[in-house]
Amino acid sequence: MSKKKNKLEAIDLNAYYGDFLALKNINVSMEENLVTAFIGPSGCGKSTFLRTLNRMNDYVDGFRVQGQILLDEQDIYRKEVQVDELRKQVGMVFQKPNPFPKTIYENVIYGLKIQGISDKTLLQETAEKTLRQTTLWDEVKDKLHKSALALSGGQQQRLCIARALAISPSVVLMDEPTSALDPISTAKIEELIYELKKNYTIIIVTHNMQQAARVSDHTAFFYMGELVEFAKTKTLFTSPKETRTQNYITGRFG
């Protein structure tokens, strides 16, 4: 593995929904400025794990974790951590594009607005910058003040990425970001991921093994709440150590 700095690290992590043990003793490190992919069949815990990284599951009834998740070597489940502060550092993009029913512009600046930033120039600059980063600028620059719901699915998803980038996180979590999109939009998002990893640490959950192979540097294979194997993507797909990994990537289950 490479010698980059560990951005995120899970140590002896267990997670429960009520009595159900959803994640079993996960230990994994995600390195800075790389793309780490989580793969595995439905219900394997990969999305649950992703959502523990920015504590999105805090609002789920009966959900609790044991163990630690370190962001820049600090446990994010410490008592004194404010979730809203954490989420400014760890952005998230969801499975289905979920733009707010507002204008494109309002969507992009929402994260800044709730931080109390009202400097117009700064807001506009940020909006333009992030829309450019997500290659959406040319498509929407004339309709910034039109409803975001009028955009196509792929555009909406790039808008959601722009929205996440606008608050300058260092990590971006992506929960199957292309599962609701057509192949062309998917390709655009994948290119974008490749660009973004220069500046961000990206963690992506995907159902699609080809996608993991195309975009990620490291891949973790989850199965029934366990982390079965974690390796460089190339290694994992060409010479998996575990039989379960091999069965999955060769399509015997999942």
């Binding site: 999105m56 989420r87 979920n98 709730i114 996440a164």
Partner: peptide
């Protein structure tokens, strides 16, 4: 919509 907002630190 709520998830999107929470994820942005709201």
């Amino acid at each position: 919509i709520r998830d999107g907002s929470f994820a942005l630190g709201a």
